[in-house]
């Protein structure tokens, strides 16, 4: 059970997330929807502690995650894998090594660190990585460089990396916003698969209500840093949606699609 208690985050004068409280039982697949700037990303990043909350606590199975430091924090991050909009794979490394990154925290101590720094992974872990890749039809690409893969393939490599962490939770921050519809489907299917087969809790930021309806049993709607709705997707009726966002669903989807349009991956030096 993951529990957020009155969690808030300020960036300077902006209140990105304010007073969100939430309980997520293990094994749920939760969709978080909202416009760009609604605080969805900040919320997920706070759970992984990539962003520190200004106020509030996060508990996982009774452990106060917000108080963790050092090795404890690294262990927590291993337990909740993160999936990013831009995949965040190491482009110049091969796919297999990218997946093995998920094992870096599994060998404790100085010797373990040294071994991993020299890319020494036991055959068992390598086979495990290949199995994880094979599950998403990517075993044949294992020795290619990550940047030779399509966006959808890269995102599934990222999910394989999270599987290697043997995490209990996967936080997916706009996992399909940079993908075309067909690739978006394969990635969402992969997330559903790890949720159903491995019982991993999935928290997924989405900008399309249809996707949330199709894949998630529970939807959270954010607006202006606040949680405006929490319940089954059927509860998010047209009237409720208009109440929260002031627009119809079609308009909401259209606006979000523009806001979340994929950014250019390689940004030229300021020109």
């Amino acid at each position: 059970m993951l529990e957020l208690q009155n969690i808030s985050r300020r960036f300077g004068a902006t209140q990105a997330v304010s007073g969100v409280s939430l309980k997520v039982p293990a094994g749920q697949m939760v969709g978080v929807i909202g416009r760009s700037g609604a605080g969805k990303s900040t919320l997920l990043r706070m759970i992984n502690r990539l962003t520190e909350p200004s106020e509030g606590r996060i508990l996982h199975d009774g452990v106060d995650v917000t108080a963790l430091r050092g090795q404890g924090l690294r262990d927590w991050r291993t337990r909740c894998g993160m999936i990013f909009q831009q995949f965040n794979l190491v482009q110049r490394l091969d796919v297999l090594t990218n997946v093995l990154v998920g094992r870096l925290n599994h060998r404790p101590g100085m010797l373990g660190t040294v071994a991993t720094l020299f890319k020494h992974f036991p055959a068992e872990e390598r086979a495990m990585a290949l199995m994880a890749l094979d599950r998403f039809d990517l075993a044949d690409q294992a020795l290619q460089r990550a940047d030779t893969l399509s966006g959808g393939q890269q995102q599934r490599v990222a999910i394989a990396r999270a599987l290697m962490q043997e995490s209990r939770i996967i936080l997916a921050d706009e996992p399909i916003a940079s993908l075309d519809p067909r690739n978006a489907r394969t990635v969402m299917d992969a997330l559903r698969d790890v949720n159903r087969r491995d019982g991993i809790t999935v928290l997924c930021n989405l900008h399309h209500l249809d996707t949330a309806r199709e894949y998630c049993t529970r939807v959270i709607a954010m607006q202006g840093g606040r949680m405006m709705f929490d319940g089954p997707p059927e509860g998010l009726t047209a009237a409720r949606l208009r109440e929260i966002y002031g627009v119809s669903e079609a308009e909401f989807n259209a606006q979000s699609a523009v806001e979340h349009a994929p950014r250019a991956t390689a940004e030229a030096p300021a020109a």
């Binding site: 068992e124 086979a127 075993a139 294992a142």
Partner: peptide
């Protein structure tokens, strides 16, 4: 999820590199 010895050998045969 964790492979047994036999699976490891299978993968070693399939993708030695």
């Amino acid at each position: 999820m964790r492979p047994d010895a036999q699976t490891v050998t299978q993968w070693q045969a399939r993708l030695p590199a």
